[in-house]
Amino acid sequence: MTVETTVPEAPVLRGSRCADCGNVAFPEAAGCQRCGGTALSPLDLARRGTVWAHTVQRFAPKSPPYVPPAGGFAPFAVGYVELPDGVRVEAVLDAIDIDDPAELTGAVVTLVATEPVPRFATRQHQEAGR
């Protein structure tokens, strides 16, 4: 599960690490998928990683369960971010131009939100937001 941090500008994803084999899981797991171990300790995951692969959601998902943003549905990028902790996390990806493969493919991205799902942003997107 993800947890809200006390510092709003520094969200963090909570995963876990297996005491027996060192495997890292997200969300925080009760049992280790790799070795079956049950001794897992909570682990705050790195806030920066690289985009492993992504796609673009071109049509509005079914509602419910989807809750479109206030301005209505707009296509968004979604993919997996490879973190140095040794796990790839599914996330919505913020970019200036989601149709520009150069901005997202293999890009370094930073965690910007943990709820309702992890959200990472490209450097360009973050700079534009400042």
Binding site: P27, Q57, P64, V67, F76, V78, V92, E115, P116, V117
Partner: peptide
């Protein structure tokens, strides 16, 4: 978590 549905990732 239900958030995955709300965010449009249950596709």
């Amino acid at each position: 978590p239900v958030g995955y549905g709300e965010a449009g990732l249950m596709v």
